Simulated scan of single mutants.
Amino acid sequence: MDKWIRWAGEIRKITMAYKIDTEELEREEMEHVMVAESTERGIVNPEVKLEFHELSRVRVFAEMLRSSEEIEGIEIEVAPDFDLMLHYKGGEQECYQLWLGQPNRPSAITKLERTDVIWKLPEHTTNRLIDILGVNYSPLICFAN
């Protein structure tokens, strides 16, 4: 038993740097997300199809923003797949349009008031968004590696 306790203590020391602060996760600023099927670039469709209020689901969209990387020299010709209305504590709201990529491929977002700037989302973010949105089709956007 004593040997096991020492072993557990050593594992705790090694993994301490990777410890997730659960209180920090509970302090997520985003409160809820509304999703609509996009009808046109630059305009938010008011017909909301999905709403997410649970922290575990809202966190997917917060991580979407944190994992995004601004890209230059790309123009997307097709209409976005989804309109995202992100609601924050304090009543603030941001609207994004999402071009959802295929599984294991990047996606793209643009902020409604900055449609000239496009952010690329990594493959793992695309996969999480596909899961949470319940998508089972292959949208048109595709980035070359």
Rank of each mutant, 00 (worst) to 15 (best):
T115R: 12
V117Q: 11
K49C: 04
E92N: 05
E77M: 15
P139C: 06
Q93T: 15
R57N: 13
D116T: 03
K111P: 00
M85V: 11
R114S: 10
V48A: 02
G91C: 09
G73P: 07
Y137A: 00
E75S: 10
F143H: 09
K111E: 10
N45R: 12
K120A: 08
E51Y: 00
R27Q: 15
M64G: 02
F52C: 01
R57Y: 12
E47K: 12
L133R: 09
P122W: 07
L65Y: 06
A8S: 09
V117F: 11
G101H: 07
H32Q: 00
E10I: 08
D2N: 14
D83P: 04
S68N: 05
G73F: 07
L55Q: 11
I118T: 15
E24Q: 11
L65V: 09
A79Y: 08
W7S: 09
L100Y: 00
W99R: 06
E24M: 10
P103W: 01
T126R: 01
R66M: 10
P106H: 07
I43H: 10
W99V: 06
Q93D: 01
T110W: 02
T110S: 15
L100R: 07
L121W: 10
G134D: 09
R105H: 12
F143I: 10
G101P: 08
G101D: 03
V48M: 01
Q93M: 14
D116W: 12
A8I: 10
K89Y: 12
V35T: 09
L100D: 01
G134V: 06
L84C: 04
E28K: 14
M34A: 15
T22I: 14
S138C: 06
T115K: 10
